[in-house]
Simulated assay, not measured.
Amino acid sequence: MSIIWTIIVGLVAGLLARAIKPGADSMGWIMTVILGIVGAVVGGFLASALGMSVEGGFGGLVLSVIGAIIVLFIYEFATGKRRLK
C-alpha cells in the first residue's frame, strides 16, 4: 500500500509543481509521477539539512512540491530548454 500512496502523492506533487512553475513543461503522466517522487526525495533532503522533522501530511506535501520545482529547474537547465519571453 505504501508504494501506491507514494505514487499518488508523487502525482499530486508533480502536478502542483508543474502548475506553480512558469513555462511549458511538456511531459506525460509517468514523468510527472517520477518528478513528484524525486521532488519528495529532494524535499526530504532539504528538510533534514535544515533540521526539520516532517513526516507526511501537509508539510510533507509542501516540501515535495518545493523539491519538485527545484528538480524542474535543474531539468530545464540540463536539457537546455529556455522559457520564451
Rank of each mutant, 00 (worst) to 15 (best):
P22S: 15
V33E: 01
I69S: 02
D25F: 10
G56M: 08
G10V: 05
F77W: 10
I20D: 06
V38R: 04
F58P: 03
F58T: 00
F58L: 09
S48I: 14
M52Y: 07
S26L: 10
W5H: 11
A13G: 03
E55K: 08
G44S: 13
M31L: 07
R82I: 11
I69K: 02
G14C: 04
R82W: 11
V33R: 00
V12I: 15
G10F: 00
R82T: 11
K21T: 15
I74P: 03
G60L: 04
V38W: 05
G67P: 06
E76G: 12
E55N: 09
V65T: 03
F58H: 00
G14V: 03
L72K: 05
V38C: 13
G43F: 03
I70D: 03
L63G: 01
I34L: 14
I3G: 13
W5S: 14
A68W: 05
D25K: 13
G10A: 02
I37P: 02
V65G: 01
R83Y: 08
V65K: 01
I34A: 14
G36D: 02
V65N: 04
A13F: 01
S2T: 10
I4R: 09
G23C: 07
I4D: 08
L50E: 10
A17Q: 04
W5F: 13
G67I: 04
G23T: 07
A40N: 09
R18K: 15
I37H: 00
G44V: 04
E76K: 11
V9R: 11
V9L: 09
I3S: 15
L46K: 11
V12S: 07
G59V: 00
V62P: 00
G59L: 03
G60S: 02
G36A: 05
S64W: 00
E76W: 05
G10R: 00
I20P: 02
K21P: 09
G36S: 02
I74K: 10
K85Q: 14
A17N: 06
E55V: 08
W5D: 11
F45K: 13
V71H: 01
L11G: 06
G57W: 05
A40G: 15
K85P: 13
V42M: 14
A78N: 12
F45M: 15
V38E: 08
A24S: 15
L35F: 04
G51T: 01
S48P: 01
I66D: 06
L63A: 05
F45R: 12
A78S: 12
R83V: 12
L50N: 07
T79D: 12
M27A: 05
W29P: 07
G10T: 00
